[in-house]
Design a protein around this nucleic acid. Structure first.
Lengths: 72, 72
DNA sequence: TATGAATACAAATTCAAA
DNA sequence: TTTGAATTTGTATTCATA
């Protein structure tokens, strides 16, 4: 499996965050993998930082990653 | 040391978050203690949840807790 | 420069207990 | 119902490696 470049991977992460509530980096790793994109938690952590993503509280006490408005 | 009630403690936490960038719950525990308020990380974690606080990215790559606008 | 594995660090939750 | 101690879970960073 050809390793996707960083920009493409980050774009996919952004899309994933919009599509569903995601509460952990491990979950992102899984979703990417299901999409054929291999990356570890360390990489996802760095991607989220570069994307400016933050973990916010969702009604119900759960948390989910979200992109800042200006990044959408 | 008279233990401060939960509402008072949460209010203090809110003020602390406004006064300075705070990047960890341990730091909140310390600041409260400096103020004579004893609480553990577990309690601070619950307080932040009840306050709706989130950890956001600050320019420079650091993170800081913040209250949602509507809670101010 | 980008990455992963391992580690260090931070936060949420469990489980008593009062 | 609230809390703290201990634990589990999650995230950032370090340290190689390419």
């Amino acid at each position: 499996m050809a390793t996707l470049g960083k920009p493409q991977r980050q774009h996919r992460i952004g899309r994933l965050l919009e599509e569903q509530p995601i509460s952990s980096q491990a979950q992102i790793v899984e979703l990417l993998a299901a999409d054929g994109v291999v990356a570890t938690q360390a990489t996802v952590s760095r991607d989220l930082e570069e994307l400016g993503a933050v973990k916010v509280r969702i009604p119900g006490g759960t948390m989910a990653y979200a992109l800042p408005e200006f990044a959408k």
